[in-house]
Simulated scan of single mutants.
Amino acid sequence: MKAMLLNSAGSWRDMKIEEVEKPKPKEGEMLVRIKAAGLNPVDYKSGENGIPTWKYPHILGLDAAGTVEETGPGVDRFSIGDHVVFLNDMTEWGAFAEFAVTKAFAASKLPYNVLFQDAAALPVAGYTAYQALFHKLRVKEGESILIHAGAGGVGGFAIQLAKQAGLKIFTTARKENHDYVKKLGADVAVDYTAESFVERIQEETGGIGVNYVLDTVGSDNATKSLDILAYNGHIAFIAGAPKMDEFIDFSHPVSFHHVALGSVYQSRNVKEQMKIAEIGNHMLDLLSDGKLEAMVSQKIPSVDIPQGLEQLETRRVRGKIISEW
């Protein structure tokens, strides 16, 4: 099969499409012919540093959508030709290839009216947003949330899901993205390049703060966000933990939630792994019903994946970039 090969850690900018042997599904697995694969910051970050268990050449790519080509023993929920989407296991060969293997119980079947390109936008960004809001923060209607980087993949999905859940939504975004994030559902957009989001949120909430924060930026940003959490507030963090010890205060208790969606494959907890498909099924239904926008901003040929990842590295991309195979 043809695949975009990473020949060594740090060489992701130089990846090229080459021929490798097609993988074979084992028990409980299925081989999927990839039609579309989403690009994510984790692709260039892992491609830069590598993972100790990888053997090179490696294939990156965690967002995958396509048709079932072959099923291994014990797979009975899917048939040859089914349209599916799945979150790939980061330790295995990924979706930047003509074919990829997945555990069948972690895949979701596409509704008839959902395109491969839109489905491929979901797994890393969409599932992460869903897990953060509903499995970690357990958001409640009528409360408030600050979602950082609202114009990005995780942030954009989180805004849409939070809006449907009935929250008041604050988000950070550059000025040129304010109309975009408000169209997704944000009530208040803060230009973090021009003003302090801490001061602005304190002003907007009368000094009370927000009930929830979803931080997708990093440890320092998450730490600053603690200053605008309301009493008994919750923060979910993806890109780095806040400095918790500096904020543990009896008079102002808050709760911390670490979100690491893809790490579930390294656990032995099959029940938790199966929740990936449950999230996927729900989000696909929302897409099918027109209640969720996939936010696909660019569709690129597979040969341009390295250039797409370079765009993501600038942190200026709206929504999702999808490669087509």
Rank of each mutant, 00 (worst) to 15 (best):
P123M: 04
P25T: 02
E21Q: 12
F237A: 09
I17G: 13
D191K: 02
T205D: 11
V85T: 08
D285I: 00
L287H: 05
G142L: 01
G262H: 09
D245C: 03
G94W: 10
R315Y: 10
G66C: 07
V213Y: 08
F250D: 15
S196T: 07
A162P: 10
K24R: 10
L62W: 13
V198H: 14
G94F: 05
A151D: 09
Y56W: 03
P301C: 10
W54N: 01
L312Q: 14
A3W: 12
G38F: 10
G319E: 06
G72F: 03
V124N: 15
S263L: 13
L39R: 00
L292W: 15
K45Y: 05
I145R: 11
G240C: 00
R315V: 06
L284F: 07
V20C: 14
L122Q: 00
A97R: 09
V264A: 03
G240W: 08
D227R: 14
L115R: 13
Q298H: 15
I208G: 06
A120M: 11
L292M: 08
G81I: 02
Y130M: 02
A36S: 15
G240P: 13
Q202L: 15
A37I: 06
V296Q: 05
I145F: 04
A37S: 15
N232Y: 14
Q117W: 00
V101A: 05
S108L: 08
L161G: 05
L214W: 01
Y44I: 01
R315I: 05
V114T: 03
V190H: 03
D227K: 13
R33Q: 13
Y130G: 04
K35Q: 15
R318D: 11
Y127M: 13
S267R: 06
A106K: 01
K320D: 04
F197N: 06
N88I: 00
D285Q: 10
S108Q: 00
E313R: 15
E48R: 08
E98T: 03
K299N: 14
G61C: 10
Q117F: 01
I169D: 03
W325K: 12
P25D: 09
V114E: 03
F237D: 06
F157W: 07
A97E: 07
G152A: 13
L309A: 10
H252Q: 15
V124S: 06
A106Y: 09
V303R: 15
G50H: 03
V84D: 01
K291T: 05
I276C: 03
A162H: 08
S302Y: 10
A100Q: 14
Y56C: 02
A165M: 04
A37F: 04
H178E: 09
D304V: 04
R200F: 09
D220G: 11
A222V: 11
E29C: 09
G153R: 00
F99H: 11
A120G: 03
G209D: 08
V114M: 07
Y265Q: 07
D215Q: 00
G47S: 12
G319Q: 12
W325S: 12
D245S: 14
S255W: 12
V188D: 13
M244H: 09
K16S: 15
